[in-house]
Design a protein around this nucleic acid. Sequence first.
DNA 1: TGTCCGATTGGT
DNA 2: CCAATCGGACAG
Length: 213
Amino acid sequence: MLSSLQDQAADTSTSKRKRLPREFFTRRDVLLVARELLGQVLVVPARDGARIAGMIVETEAYRGPADRASHAYGGRRTRRTETMYRVGGTAYVYFVYGMYYQFNVVTNVEDIPHAVLIRALEPVEGITVMRKRRQAHADHNLASGPGKLCIALGIDRGLDGADLLGDRVWIEAGRSVRPASIGVGPRVGIDYAGEWVAKPWRFWIRDNVHVSR
DNA sequence: TGTCCGATTGGT
DNA sequence: CCAATCGGACAG
């Protein structure tokens, strides 16, 4: 089973992949979108026309305004959170801890601030560039965290608000992941969120070495 | 304007 | 376990 997973993952680097359509992102269930983003491929074009890409192996759903862990909790609408109120299929990129960027995918229709944090990628294309940016770390440590993947792909605040159906960053169809291969558990780094801390809204591909932690 | 703190990471 | 490092949110 493990080998078939790897074969399929390898397949995504050679076959033609289709870009995910608007309708994938505008669905109302952010938990469903978070699960189905596993196995899809996040792509950022490099300067010379090359591509930097990684298969999504870990995600977290944020369901504002009810979700206390969300930046949009209570309907909070500020310059930073405004992006989350845009239509599904928009990139929400923010800066934290004074040094890291975090890449999110906005879901649902306009004015409903739901989003999926992309927490880890398995490198697929542009691995040499990723190694350079991440200072020659082992491959399983190139993009195995939300801050790390932004460094590896060169993502910064300039991509906040970018349309995922545009040409600055997008997501292509990779492989579907069987429910049995999906790990489910509580989100991390949100100890301030009270009862919402325990919600099992973190998803990952089981046995994949590129998952964080 | 001042203070508090974070959807993390890497080193001790 | 802890420091790094600075923008965002909010109180005053």
